[in-house]
Amino acid sequence: MAEKKSNTKIEAMSFEQALNELENIVEQLEQGNESLKRGVELYERGVALKTHCETQLREAQMKVEKIEARAGKAVGTTPVKNGDNG
């Protein structure tokens, strides 16, 4: 398995990127071929990725806005209340 570039800033990662890297790290650690030092680094990054994913999942909120268009261009938005009226 190719070494994923693991120096990407986690805060800038999409949920999917973070989840994929977390999965890679878990698999790498489970194979147990890494050195002890590398293993500790991977574990720490794994924990950070997990937190990043969890935050995105837990903080998700519904927000609905209606576009105001003028001449085919979006010029503003108005919040739509009762976004989930179901």
């Binding site: 998700a60 519904m62 927000k63 609905v64 806005e65 209606k66 576009i67 938005t77 976004g83 179901g86």
Partner: peptide, 26 residues
């Protein structure tokens, strides 16, 4: 269309699965 069942169905299912920021272009 900003009114009616269609937008309601979409928003309802979105909030049930994964709440998101929705921009409605009427």
């Amino acid at each position: 269309s900003p009114g009616g069942a269609v937008i309601h169905d979409i928003l309802h299912r979105l909030s049930g699965r994964f709440p998101r920021h929705v921009l409605l272009w009427p």
